[in-house]
Design a protein around this nucleic acid. Sequence first.
DNA 1: AAATAAAATGCAACAATGTTGCATACATGA
DNA 2: TCATGTATGCAACATTGTTGCATTTTATTT
Lengths: 136, 136
Amino acid sequence: MKPADILSTHNLKRTSCREGIINAIALSESALSEQEIRNHLEGTYDRTTYFRSFKTLEDSGIIHKIVIDNQTIKYALGSIIKEKRKHAHFYCSKCKKVKCMSSVLTPEVRLPEGYHISETELIIKGTCNNCNCHDE
Amino acid sequence: MKPADILSTHNLKRTSCREGIINAIALSESALSEQEIRNHLEGTYDRTTYFRSFKTLEDSGIIHKIVIDNQTIKYALGSIIKEKRKHAHFYCSKCKKVKCMSSVLTPEVRLPEGYHISETELIIKGTCNNCNCHDE
DNA sequence: AAATAAAATGCAACAATGTTGCATACATGA
DNA sequence: TCATGTATGCAACATTGTTGCATTTTATTT
C-alpha cells in the first residue's frame, strides 16, 4: 500500500510531510529517528510539524515510537501496516540502529491481582550481526 | 546497608546529594523521578549535580534508570543493592508510578546468528492494583 | 589538626526534544 | 471553484542532557 493510500484509509489528509515520513520508514530496514527521517525527506518542515505528524501517525497506528533511552527515539511502521505481532526491538550500541525482531515476540506476562496491562515493550540492547561481523 | 556504607563500598565519596538520592529511593516502594527525588531531599542541588550523581550511581550499579518514555524517567535501586534478578518494570498510566515487578523476570531471548545481547528491558504499561481498586 | 590531592559541585552555556497558541496556507468534499 | 476544516510555520517556553571551568569539599597523608 502506498503512503497516500495509507493516509486516506485512516481518514488523514495527504500532506507531503506525512507521506514522506511513511515513505522513509517503509523503505528502511531499521527504525528511524526524527533526524534520520528529516534527512530522507526532500522538503524541509518545521520541528512542530514533525512533532504533530508523528503524533497523528502514531495515534492512527500507522507508525509506532520506540524509546530506547530518552535520547534515542526511533519510529517504525505500526503493526496495522505490517501485519506483525507484538515483537521485541533490538538496539545496537555500535551502529545505533534499531531493528524490529519479528522472531522475538513480547512475552505474555502475568501480574499480581488487580493489575491491568495495556502494552508490553521488550527492548534488547547489544551489538548486531552486522557490527559483530566487521569486528572479526 | 546505609547510604554512606553503600558509597564507601563502591569507592565513591560520601556527599549529601548522593546519600540523599540513595536514601530517597530506598525509602520509596516505587521508582522515583529526578523531580520526586529532588522534593525528598533537604538540601538543594544544581541540575548538573543530579545529572552527574545519577550517572555515577548508575555506573556503580547502585541505582538503575528506567526509561518509560522520553519524558518519564525513573530511578530504582540496582540489583547489586537489592539482590534481585533482572525483572520487568510496570508503569501505571494513571498514578504514573513505576514499580519493579520482581515476579516477572525478563525473558531469555534468542536472537539470530551474530547478535550479542548485553541487556534486556521489559516494560509493562497499564493500570496498577491501587488505581483499579479505587475505580470500582 | 593541618595540608594536600583528587574529586564533587555550581554556574554558564548550549543542544535536543516536547508542547502550546495563533495566524496563515493548504487539502478535500460539495 | 469554493468553503471549511486541518495542517503548517513561527514564536515562545519547559524539560532533560551535556560539557568546561572555577571553586568547594572529601578523604588521605603528614
